[in-house]
Design a protein around this nucleic acid. Structure first.
Length: 806
DNA sequence: TACTTCCTGCTTTTT
DNA sequence: GCAGGAAGTA
């Protein structure tokens, strides 16, 4: 694509952002102003410049999915040569750097990456060892505290030095937790960033190599970066001044060109350390910075924008921004007050049906948003009944399932023998007679001898108090793991190793022979995992071929060394350019089907990257949380559960900063809509398994009434519940004690048992439609096994299960 | 050692 | 109303 084509269809501020040269740039962009488009075009523009080598571009996106999309769009625009650029999330970029450089930080290259669940497990162990009261110091809370430290780049020693009171305990937990991580040769998510920053601080020469490499750095969603990520950017393209750690006579390189794009009104990840300070202080952080404002919205109608503005303006202390649209007023916002969440779901379902019937859109043009994943249930139930095609994004994740985690723990323990957490997870999976006693004996040996758990297994003879029977089992297990590791040494592809592990460990056999109907699904999930591995291996092999093409491209003369001459005094010298060209060709990551590479992919890629394509004809309705909705847009958006206590979430209502974040979340949700916005709430909602009733969300009432077309305003339940304060209070009390509806704990209602037989179709409030495949027991003990297709087979006690015969 | 049965806490949001 | 842990039992 030629240069004018790249710039066509952009408005003047966008064009300015795309072609900007020299000095850092902050693009402050409102919702729907074409942020991502600007970034994509800018990268394409850069690649099409003769003196910019694609390998010198580093673009950071928020999700891996966004990275993949941006990458393929740029390749579409300017061709294969763009494949050499780095487009990834902060985490993936750091892993890529650490895989090369981590020796310098005292880890081995085979390090494991611990996700949230692993981290929590490890922290639980630490807390137990420290004899911490789980009520006072829940692992989750400790982990949050540690995460904050890591985001602020506070080391355990520094934390201990400045902590007082309860924080002294937390700092101690942080220290031990990190020691255990190090011993397991593992890094958690926050470590990935923190360690990279520390690496650059402690090894200026390594940092300098990357500064020379990346000449163009672009960051999307800058409002959601945390302090550690900011420091990383600063290390890569800030002006470090005289304290840059290099010898005085070493050659310096000009800082790279930096462009960040963000909207402080869309910052919704402060809860995990993101800070809009990074946006507000950009001009101080990067002197000489330019700010470009994108205020025209191309996505939504003026009505939608007015609603969004009306909500967000209640946040104090935000820089003023006036978003405008040329799309006209469009349709009014539809408001609906439901009696129950089922009623709300029915309204949404019927409305979707009606819109499709009237030809006002396809299923794939519509999305239902909610605050928490648990709220998807009512919609699923109703949508199944109505026969609406839908897809829930997020929720119960594939990689969170027990059997999948077990399999991955095997792989990690094989790839990284020091990984005690993974090893201890699977030492008795499947059951092989190595119980708690045996495990403790081995752990004692490991502690006494200062060796890893894997080494303790190899020296099990020395373990104190290990029964002979257990000893034999442990030896057999050690032998098996050694065989698996030999497969890694022989460079067998990840998929092959996985298959062997599943078969030889006996995991598959145990599940196949099990009487628990759920285990059938588990087998299917493992087969699915094998498929994922096979696809990964296949992909790595084809990438290999593409890389070869790219090398040819470089060699055939498009590389930096033949590019336009640099202006004197600016940019890298010719020597540096030549060196850079060498580095670019030499330093390409070998595409890699190894076990380590596979594990890395699994750790970093969220499986919520499965947002349905709108290209399929008809398609499906998308259900997701507001957080997942970030960066997406739909013709029709249903914003549901607009109730105080739900959204804003109960736990955010007391804290003004958290409330402000919830409001930004509302702003994000509203601005996802192109043409039609529905807002709904329910007066009565089942929460924690019991009914509770909530007032309208403050965000709902902040929207001017004239923008809203009320379909139903006052619910009957609302009128009896709120006519008098007394009655309302007593109703609430009754609800709270579970006496009114009889579904509270201990007040099990007597319900007539649905008589089901094999082959009956039933509806479950959580799993949806299913078929009875077996029945057992009688009377109160009657149970049924129900097959829910993709959700698998579950066994229910008919007395309690929310099952309905169809 | 392994299976069963309570029982608790949980629901924010995710790279 | 469910998962995962703790405690109790074979």
């Amino acid at each position: 694509m030629t240069e004018p084509d790249l710039l066509a269809a952009l408005n003047p501020p966008q064009r300015e952002a795309v072609t900007h040269a020299g000095g850092p740039v902050l693009v402050v962009a409102g919702a729907g102003s074409g942020k991502t488009r600007v970034l994509t075009r800018r990268i394409a523009h850069l690649v099409s410049q003769r003196d910019v080598h694609p390998g010198s571009i580093l673009a950071i996106t928020f999700t891996n999915k966004a990275a993949a999309e941006m990458r393929s769009r740029v390749v579409d625009l300017v061709g294969n040569r763009a494949r050499l650029m780095w487009v990834s999330t902060f985490h993936s970029a750091c892993v890529r750097i650490l895989r090369t450089e981590i020796d310098a930080m005292g880890f081995r290259k085979s390090f494991s990456i611990y996700d949230d669940t692993d981290a929590k497990r490890l922290m639980t162990l630490v807390a137990r060892d420290q004899n911490l009261d789980p009520k006072k110091f829940p692992p989750r809370g400790l982990l949050n505290w540690v995460s904050n430290c890591k985001n602020e780049l506070i080391t355990p020693a520094q934390a201990a030095a400045s902590a007082s009171g309860l924080d002294e305990v937390r700092a101690e937990a942080y220290k031990v937790y990190n020691q255990r991580l190090r011993a397991a040769n593992a890094l958690d998510f926050d470590d990935l960033i923190m360690t990279t920053v520390l690496l650059f601080e402690q090894h200026p020469e390594i940092r300098e190599a990357y500064r020379r490499r990346f000449r163009q750095v672009l960051v999307d969603e800058y409002q959601d970066t945390n302090h550690a990520q900011y420091l990383l950017i600063k290390q890569l393209c800030g002006d470090l001044g005289p304290d840059d750690g290099l010898p005085d006579d070493a050659p310096r390189i000009e800082p790279a060109e930096l462009m960040v794009v963000g909207d402080s009104d869309q910052s919704i990840y402060a809860f995990r350390g993101a800070t809009i300070r990074n946006i507000l202080d950009f001009e101080n952080d990067f002197p000489g910075a330019n700010t470009i404002l994108l205020e025209q919205n191309y996505r939504s109608t003026q009505t939608v924008l007015s609603a969004a503005n009306a909500v967000i303006k209640n946040n104090s202390g935000r820089p003023s921004k006036r978003l405008w649209s040329q799309a006209g007023d469009g349709e009014k916002i539809v408001g609906y007050v439901a009696d129950t969440e089922h009623d709300e779901a029915r309204f949404v379902g019927n409305e979707i049906d009606a819109l499709v019937d009237k030809g006002q859109g396809k299923y794939s043009d519509m999305a239902v948003f909610y605050r928490t994943n648990a709220q998807s249930r009512a919609f699923e139930e109703v949508f199944i009944r109505l026969g609406l095609p839908y897809r829930v994004v997020g929720g119960v994740r594939f990689y969170e399932r027990r059997e999948v985690r077990d399999a991955l723990s095997y792989l990690r323990a094989i790839s990284n023998p020091a990984d005690d957490v993974s090893l201890r997870r699977i030492i008795n999976v499947p059951k092989r007679g190595i119980g708690e006693r045996a495990e403790v004996a081995l752990a004692m040996l490991a502690a006494n001898e200062q060796i890893s758990f894997a080494d303790a297994i190899d020296r099990a003879d020395e373990a104190p108090g290990l029964a002979t029977r257990s000893l034999n089992q442990v030896k057999a297990f050690g032998k098996m793991m050694a065989d698996f590791r030999a497969m890694v040494d022989a460079d067998l592809p990840a998929s092959e190793i996985l298959e062997t592990v599943l078969k030889r460990s006996g995991m598959i056999d145990e599940l196949r022979n099990s009487s628990d109907p759920q285990d059938e699904t588990r087998v299917e999930n493992l087969i699915e995992l094998v498929k994922v591995a096979q696809e990964f291996v296949a992909q790595a092999t084809t990438q290999d071929l593409e890389m070869d093409e790219d090398f040819e491209l470089i060699e055939s003369g498009t590389s930096l060394s033949t590019g336009a001459p640099q202006a004197a005094g600016e940019g890298p010298s010719d020597d540096v350019v030549a060196e850079l060209a060498d580095e670019l060709t030499a330093g390409q990551p070998e595409p890699d089907a190894s076990l380590g590479a596979f594990l890395e992919r699994i750790a970093l890629v969220a499986d919520s990257d499965q947002i349905p394509d709108s290209s399929d004809d008809g398609g499906v309705v998308t259900l997701m949380t507001l957080h997942t909705a970030k960066g997406l847009e739909f013709d029709t958006v249903f914003l549901t559960g607009m109730e105080d206590g739900i959204f804003p979430h109960m736990r955010a209502m007391t804290d003004s900063a958290e409330l402000a974040e919830e409001r930004r979340l509302a702003y994000v949700g509203i601005t996802r809509a192109r043409k039609r916005l529905y807002l709904s709430r329910s007066v009565l909602r089942t929460l924690f398994g019991r009914p509770s009733h909530n007032p309208a969300s403050r965000f709902f009432t902040e929207i001017p009434d004239e923008l809203i077309d009320w379909r139903r305003k006052v619910s009957e339940v609302a009128s009896w519940a709120s006519t008098s304060a007394d009655r309302s209070a007593s109703a609430r009390a009754a609800v709270a004690s579970g006496t009114v509806f009889g579904s509270g704990r201990g007040a099990t209602s007597k319900k007539t048992l649905p008589a089901v037989n094999t082959g009956d179709r039933v509806l479950h409030s959580t799993y949806g439609m299913g078929t009875v495949v077996a029945t057992s027991g009688s009377g109160d003990n009657a149970k049924a096994d129900v097959d829910f297709g993709s959700s698998g087979v579950k066994r229910f006690a008919l007395k309690y299960a929310p099952l309905e015969k169809l």
